[in-house]
Design a protein around this nucleic acid. Structure first.
Lengths: 250, 250
DNA sequence: CATATGGCTCGATATGGATCAAATTTGAGG
DNA sequence: CCTCAAATTTGATCCATATCGAGCCATATG
């Protein structure tokens, strides 16, 4: 086959289709007028696939792009000089990764696919140029970053004031509402991350996470078999989290 | 005196002078070309004074402005439905408050002056318009917000993985470097916040904070009389924080 | 098939820091 | 200088969770 034609086909495949994306109501396009969408599509590198455990980017390598999750899920974490890992977030479809890196030349964390995951890449230089032209998009970026700060504060609060049960209930409810946002079952889903990741993220020992899961199960609040979770009594979970707002924590 | 003249004088006093501000190398003007500074000055309401314990803004009231600290210091905190307070940050001269509120119509937290404090007010609607015109300023805003996310992650890390001693050492070092940035003594300063605020911020009991202070003192690492602190052995402090980076945590 | 490996769970024990109670210091008014 | 309230410190006890040890299951490997 003619190589030029082949290249053209590849280009067409890569050619973005934010228009058609089912996540456009969550992701960046949300902010953009229909007729400006093409401009966003011009800069995005769409549909990159990563397999389980593959790195989307690595801490301390040159910061180039933000990434939106299209399908699958991603874990971000910081590796300290001591070699400890701290999970800083879990990202689901429609959510944007890399906002914590815009303050420096290098990525502030490592992003790893938790399963087969498809992402859209937004090169920051182009993204910044574009937000400069589209005030709505700029506003949306501020919005997303601000939300990220708030999530992070909520997490800090969870870590500093709440018990193991409260933390885990909060995480389950957060995941639940994020599944719901994507029109999936809010009570019946499969956790993309291991108990280890949960423990690390919530500042607990794996054993504690495990124990709380079984305790919840014995109380009839959830049903859990491995990563498959069913929330049997959402109100009870909300009660456990007490004054902890549902949308908090990531 | 003629009222018109009087008003004019007030206006002149309020008229911004980012040009002359000694903090312009920390604050927003940093990003702005000399000849664009006037435009920033046009939108800023400069030199508002708040006394100790006065609120600069309140959680859940309409979000209007970000504030830069000019002198003094500010504490931000979230009040949960249960009535608990969670301190989310301490802000020193040159630092910007309110970035966590840009995602919503209301302030996400309450900002309270810890002492007699002067702030510059940046109405967000105008600030956004201006960042739209000045790409450098937009970039700087991204930078600041990203830094805030990172600080918040660092705090979460501190809260989830580190001991009481490590947390307090990290806070002292953070304050130290922030004083240094303002060309003040990095080893001899007075804490703007109470032991209670420190405890709340670091997720500890007041008693624990107190005990760690005396322990550090007995070890000859610091000297503390009330809020006056002298860091006698910075290296020892850094050693305590282990793998915790100095600029982290706020 | 046997063995290794990683993820998860369970029980027993240890401990850092919370909590409770009380003494001491500091600071603002009068 | 005195008084009262608030902030800080100190001491004694308690508890949630880490830690250690071990077993179990599923999947991967030689």
């Amino acid at each position: 086959m003619d190589q030029a034609i082949q290249l053209h086909q590849v280009a067409s495949q890569l050619k973005a289709t934010c228009h058609k994306c089912s996540l456009s109501n969550l992701c960046l396009p949300l902010a953009v007028e229909e007729n400006d969408l093409e401009r966003l599509e011009d800069i995005v590198l769409q549909g990159k696939i990563f397999h389980r455990a593959e790195h989307i980017f690595d801490q301390s390598t040159p910061f180039k792009s933000c990434f939106a999750v299209r399908s699958g899920s991603v874990k971000t974490s910081i590796i300290t000089e001591g070699g400890d890992e701290q999970v800083t977030g879990f990202f689901m479809p429609g959510e944007l990764i890399g906002l914590d890196s815009m303050a420096s030349d290098n990525y502030a964390c490592t992003a790893k696919a938790l399963e087969r995951t498809s992402v859209c890449e937004f090169p920051v230089d182009k993204l910044e140029q574009l937000t400069h032209k589209l005030p709505e998009l700029q506003h949306h970026m501020y919005h997303l970053m601000s939300q990220e700060i708030r999530n992070s504060h909520q997490l800090a609060m969870l870590l500093s004031k709440n018990t193991a049960e409260e933390r885990i209930a909060a995480l389950l409810l957060s995941l639940s509402s994020r599944f719901q946002r994507r029109r999936m079952s809010p009570t019946n889903f499969s956790l993309p991350m291991s108990r280890n990741d949960i423990a690390n993220f919530l500042g607990l020992a794996v054993e504690t996470v495990s124990r709380v899961f079984t305790r919840f199960q014995n109380q009839g609040i959830i049903k859990a078999r491995g990563r498959e979770v069913e929330l049997l009594d959402v109100e009870a979970l909300q009660l456990v989290t007490r004054d902890f707002s549902r949308q908090g924590c990531r």
